[in-house]
Design a protein around this nucleic acid. Structure first.
Lengths: 259, 259
DNA sequence: CAGTGGTCTAGACCACTGG
DNA sequence: CAGTGGTCTAGACCACTGC
């Protein structure tokens, strides 16, 4: 990464361009760091240069770098550790294992329970239908990977999920690989495909169990279930996964925090 | 508000006390501002003193006050407006009208549609059962107000909510008052009872419609519906409302943002 | 134009980590 | 002990608002 264009902030410089609005220096620094993250200059789990180093590199004060990093840390892209450094966030850490899974047992919490038992039902290539293509920003008919899996807690199947992934970036993804990997699926995406999910949107509905899913979750045919449709984004707001989860909520619930 | 105790930060001072850990100055300032908010020194919608004024009052630099206010603004307790001042957040603003309501039409969004049609089914006093008492942190059997209301969009009843409120803080709340008030219910709580909801936790499940609710929402007896159970907190993490909403999700969905 | 919040700097010192 | 992030200060200047 290099300074392709000088960092400017003066009224004269801004007046030259059309209407680039006012952009604080620290936002420009933030964008530069973001570029480094996208380009893979620093990999998930690794440390980025110290604030002093970055300040020297970008020719700004440490405080300006600090403010840029502050925002990236608030967005969970970076992780600050006092006395050690600033690290690229990753889904591999035990601590954030269930950051994207909001299902909780009605009593207790997921962390204290053992890890979920996972079973891959299938993993296959197919052509994206209109809905999947639109969600992933692909041309209709493009090849996608569809994965179906079931998660169980204490032997009780609780979640049935379908994932649709663009076949290009996920070249080589196989059922064996999914079954062999020990850890969060998003951690596998990071280590095997260099794809880090940074944000997601979920749409939740109450639905009736469809026959095949009802069988997998061992519930009666018309049981009420939670449908959780997720679009996950990688850097640059690029959609990289469509996921539809069906959750049993007789012993669990979807938690959410409002503020 | 006054400085009842001096702001300290030195190693010697900390060593004196038992084990108060290290508390940055700006956290102490934040706590002091929070006290002012709780005490009602500045009311929702009003401006708090300028950063310079607060810095002078607390005998710290403007930057320290700034960092304290930054965090309070990030928590949606304060609202900064450049060139104007810093204001106590309120639920009355058009902009945050649906901050706590995550239901969205599958096409379009709530903001662009007109306001919901509201109907109060009842508003009555009764004794809290164990569950309500626990949620509100009250002794079992304490008097609470229960409100039931139905929200409709374009004439279609979509939400049926039950609210349980501690009768003490909500002394005088009546069905007429609820029906007369034009605006978000939390705005009424602010203006009439001086109670501001700052945070909430929701637990979501898929359920079957119960007969009475099914009738209100005009759905068949066993339709799958979303159950949204909310505990809302005022300052100081004090629970002040238990709410159970039943949402139709045939044309709407519950949205959530993960990061 | 004065007053507000927002940005940027430079420097000092503190708390935490690991060799 | 050196190196990291975290806090605090003082001062300059910028952008926005409203009179």
């Amino acid at each position: 990464m290099s300074l392709s264009s000088p960092l400017v902030n003066t009224a004269e410089a801004l007046a030259d361009a059309a209407a680039p609005a006012f952009s604080p220096l620290y936002q420009q620094i933030k964008a530069l760091i973001l570029q480094g993250l996208q380009a893979g200059e620093w990999k998930p789990g690794e440390a980025i240069p110290s604030e002093m180093d970055l300040a020297a590199r970008f020719k700004v004060s440490q405080g300006t770098v600090r403010k840029a990093i502050d925002e990236l840390a608030a967005e969970n892209l970076l992780l600050r550790r006092q006395g050690k450094g600033t690290f690229v966030a990753t889904h591999s850490e035990r601590q954030v294992r269930y950051r994207f899974l909001h299902l909780q047992p009605d009593e207790g919490d997921l962390q204290s329970q053992g890890p979920a038992e996972r079973q891959i039902v299938f993993c296959k290539r197919l052509r994206a239908n209109a809905k999947v293509a639109r969600a992933l920003g692909l041309p209709s008919g493009e090849t996608v990977v569809q994965v179906r899996r079931v998660l169980a807690f204490h032997g009780v199947p609780t979640i049935c999920e379908d994932l649709w992934l663009p076949a290009g970036p996920f070249k080589g993804l196989s059922q064996e690989q999914l079954e062999a990997f020990n850890g969060p699926m998003y951690a596998l995406f990071e280590s095997e495909f260099g794809l880090r999910m940074v944000r997601a949107e979920e749409k939740i509905k109450a639905v009736h169990a469809e026959p095949d899913v009802a069988a997998l979750l061992q519930v009666e045919a018309h049981a009420p279930l939670l449908s959780v449709e997720r679009i996950a984004f990688t850097y640059n707001q690029q959609p990289m996964e469509l996921r539809r989860g069906i959750y049993r909520t007789d012993t669990h619930h979807y938690r959410n925090e409002l503020s």
